[in-house]
Nucleic acid binder design. Structure first.
Lengths: 235, 235
DNA sequence: CGATAGATGTATCGGCTCGATATAGTGCGG
DNA sequence: CCGCACTATATCGAGCCGATACATCTATCG
């Protein structure tokens, strides 16, 4: 999972560990990012697998950002002293051809029924690298997961009628609302995706049934299932 | 973290591992609950620490639920064959005095600035065991965390103006909305808490300034901070 | 009847991630 | 010159997860 995020960031430019951690935290959706205890081992794994290679210091005034764009008041100061390397010597990582392939694999991977919210967010952050079909498939997949989760909320409400602690009840209720919110978001994304597709395919084949208002609800699944595990951090 | 959840459930009744896992999944807010790979080691730790003890088979027709209330069609069948133990012999866990103490410690624990959403949910699920003050403190603490997170969202939006990928932008936007939703939920909980407190203290002291509409916003913090890490699963 | 499938249960293993900590180089203010 | 803060790489122990193994019982189908 971390590998995917690292490779995705390195696709755009070479980075050293510290900077990588920062971008993981605030460029991507990952709250607070990851700890060094995960990041460095992950980089080591990737290097061992030949997916990235590390470049030594690279002399001075390299085009690698001087850890910039944070702090605010600090930024001005940073601009003044730019070019003077600070702290310990950095090890800069660059993605390899093998790394590009690995990225594509990880991004497209099936990710069983347990796919959690973090992984979905990560995939969406790199959705621009997917084909139209793969991207739409990913969104539909997520939609089904959320529907299933919503089902379980309903089932739970029906099973344990009221006799619940007030705090627990509020928690469960909020969780259900958050899931509904997520679901409507995903459905907006799907609708947008279909519009774009329809627009780009304006020339060509015969009319393809849908395309007008009230988006076709795809595979619908009328809200009824019994089994299947799931994994949804918290919310 | 898991220990807290286990002890909280065992406070109400003796349970065996499998049933414990089920309740972790759907009684509490934890999506999909935890895996056996966490649960059994956690139980072993708790037993080693003297916080729980395991009771052997306990003969037949014990008052422990026969893993009931799931399946639906299965429930009827289950009712018929109730009383006949199934599968491997179960090991039933019971909380000890030491366990009750440990539960109280874990529930009240300070939980640094990194407290994630899962842990907060867990604490809220057991909030009924906290004193009024501790409960309110927990809610205020969570409120500040969410405000800080919201700040960072704003800062990010101001720093990286527009030049963002559409999917990434949508992701970040959705994340911000979800945080706002969480925040307003917490504020409703705080308001409710204060009302209850005011109602119960109806007899006694002089009038205490607030109590009428437009809840007092507590410690307000006018949305401005620069540093501090955080941890928020995803969203 | 016997085979098969499937639910119920307990348990362990390898691998990833985390939080804490160690190490180290640099500039800044007192 | 000393301590402090910031940048940066790296490791350790422990927790958690997914997969898997193992064991026991029942229902169902040929």
């Amino acid at each position: 999972m971390l590998e995917l995020a690292i490779l995705g960031l390195l696709k755009e430019q070479d980075l050293h560990g510290y900077e990588l951690k920062k971008r993981l935290a605030d460029t991507l959706g990952l709250g607070s990012g990851v700890s060094f205890g995960s990041l460095y081992p992950a980089l080591a794994r990737l290097e061992r697998a030949g997916a990235v290679r590390s470049l030594e210091p690279a002399a001075d005034t390299s085009p690698i950002p001087q850890t910039g764009s944070l702090g605010g008041e600090l930024a001005a100061f940073r601009a003044r002293t730019a070019g003077t390397r600070r702290g310990r010597s950095r090890k800069v990582y660059r993605i390899t051809q093998r790394g590009e392939e690995l990225f594509a694999e990880l991004l497209a991977e099936d990710s069983g029924p347990a796919e959690d919210a973090r992984l979905f967010s990560l995939r969406l952050a790199f959705a621009r690298y997917l084909s139209d079909d793969a991207r739409l498939g990913m969104l539909e997949h997520r939609r089904l997961q959320l529907l299933e989760r919503l089902n379980r909320s309903g089932a739970r409400a029906r099973t344990t009628r009221d006799k619940l602690d007030a705090y627990l009840h509020s928690l469960l209720e909020h969780d259900r609302e958050a899931t509904e919110h997520d679901l409507s978001w995903i459905e907006r994304l799907i609708a947008r995706e279909r519009e774009a597709r329809a627009a780009s395919a304006a020339v060509g084949a015969t009319d393809r049934a849908d395309s007008s208002g009230e988006h076709p609800r795809t595979t619908t699944t009328p809200v009824a299932m019994t089994t299947g595990p799931d994994k949804e951090s918290t919310r």
